[in-house]
Amino acid sequence: MASLTVTDDQVGANTKAKVVQPAWVRVMHWINALAMILMILSGWQIYNASPLFDFRFPREYTLGGWLGGGLLWHFAAMWLLMINGLAYLVTGIATGRFRKKLLPITASGVLHDVRAALTFKLGHDDLTVYKYVQRLLYAGILVVAILIVLSGLAMWKPVQLYYLVMLFGDYPAARYVHFFCMAAICAFLVVHVLLALLVPKSLRAMIIGR
């Protein structure tokens, strides 16, 4: 009676039409994508004025034309990023979405997913359930996002928000934290975009919801 045995795949197929990404997630995701790109490109412009390391970002990938322009973009886009990000966190917690989608994260689950992915056995039938690796990355990037905003605020207002500077040690340390958070976000972006392209229906879900 094989036909009566319900497999995970069939459940996935039956629920395929249900909403994977509710409207608020989609709207905030794309606002965040725009804000993030503006912040990164203008941030590279600012970085170039006084590099922390022995390299500069190519001019073609910077926003603003010069330091002053980069700063204007950065401190304009920060409002978009912060207001949208805050709304996302509040809604994510209030609706229980974070808890439902991102928890639990177990070491064995993550290891299992990594092994399955490396042997090409990781399925993508039900987009509504995040894999353990996905959960880990999405939860991790939320932490990075909070850190990059806090270190950014510390650098913007090192006197008024002195306690934030203390959190990172001192002003130069906050700069390094800000930089490495940016690097982590860029690395995340590469993987995130690549995987979205490999599983196009996930991209579709982020646009039309299902």
Partner: peptide, 17 residues
């Protein structure tokens, strides 16, 4: 004048974006 051209319309980053 170029520096004062702050809009960044000049940079490719802005153009592509």
């Amino acid at each position: 004048a170029r520096r004062r051209f702050i809009a960044g319309g000049a940079s490719l980053g802005a153009l592509t974006l």
